[in-house]
């Protein structure tokens, strides 16, 4: 905490929430596949990734709760926040669509998380650095899984290629938000807590280009973005996700396993 101590706790709180919410919301989406994936083995594969992501969000939300200092636990933050207090990028809350759609979303996020966490390992904030060191191994596997499927589908049959390209076309517009730096990002970067998003974007773009080439897919043009999930302005989808995820705690407050 030496250098990071100069960062205001409430600023760091919001940044850690961004990271935690990205993992949590994506995990919830992946969980929807359980029982519906194309094969039993894929059910397990997607559920395993979802569990990794929930694990990451638990570490991050617990840390966020400590930073906030109001005694909120990881569960309080996950189950009792309103959707406008969620700070995940819009991309992770996009509906699953068909399998190709979910795989494309997964590749775009996995490559982003990998580029980001590879650098967060060197964060001036020790707690964040240690969470990143643990998570980066998981994320590397996630990209291996999703990237493998991207190549298989893109370079597969005419139909799988068309569906994958269509998914890429429809999801690409949400990637701009990942790299749009705002004051919070700049502050984190300035204190050495987080890398510059321009650097993350370069690393992300190189990996994505390699995968798209192998998958014989076309990189869509432009990453225009008018979305601000990172500031709590969400699409209508997040409300449904949270209703699903939070109804138990809201109906039976304090219920435990």
């Amino acid at each position: 905490m030496s250098e990071a101590a100069s960062v205001a706790a409430d600023t760091l709180f919001r940044y850690v929430l961004r990271l935690g919410d990205m993992s949590l919301v994506l995990a919830q989406r992946l969980g929807e596949w359980v029982g519906h994936a194309p094969a039993l083995e894929e059910d397990l594969g997607l559920a395993n990734i979802a569990l990794d992501l929930i694990g990451q969000s638990r570490f991050l939300l617990s840390y966020a709760g400590e930073l906030e200092g109001n005694g909120r636990s990881e569960d309080d933050l996950a189950f009792l926040r309103e959707h406008r207090d969620y700070l995940n990028p819009i991309l992770v809350e996009q509906p699953n669509g068909d399998f190709a759609h979910s795989i494309v979303r997964q590749v775009l996020i996995d490559a982003f998380q990998l580029a980001l966490y590879e650098r967060l390992v060197h964060s001036s904030d020790e707690r964040l650095a240690s969470i990143a060191a643990k998570s980066v191994k998981e994320i590397r596997y996630h990209l291996r899984y999703s990237g493998g499927w991207l190549v298989r589908l893109g370079d597969g049959t005419a139909e799988s290629h068309a569906r994958t390209q269509a998914a890429l076309q429809s999801l690409w517009r949400y990637t701009g938000e990942l790299f749009a730096e705002d004051e919070l990002d700049r502050s984190m970067c300035g204190h050495g807590v987080a890398p510059s998003l321009a650097e993350v974007q370069t690393a992300w773009g190189a990996r994505i280009d390699d995968l798209l080439t192998a998958a014989t897919l076309q990189r869509p043009a432009g990453q225009a973005h008018a979305w601000h999930g990172k500031r709590g302005e969400h699409s209508e989808h997040l409300g449904y996700i949270l209703a699903d995820m939070q109804h138990m705690q809201r109906t039976y407050p304090g219920a435990r396993w």
């Binding site: 094969a39 039993l40 083995e41 397990l44 594969g45 395993n48 291996r144 899984y145 493998g148 298989r152």
Partner: peptide
């Protein structure tokens, strides 16, 4: 495990048998 290729088979085996 069922899989389309060896790479996928290793991933499925990893998820099924080494978790």
């Amino acid at each position: 495990v069922h899989a389309t290729d060896t790479r996928m088979a290793i991933e499925h085996a990893r998820d099924l048998y080494t978790r």
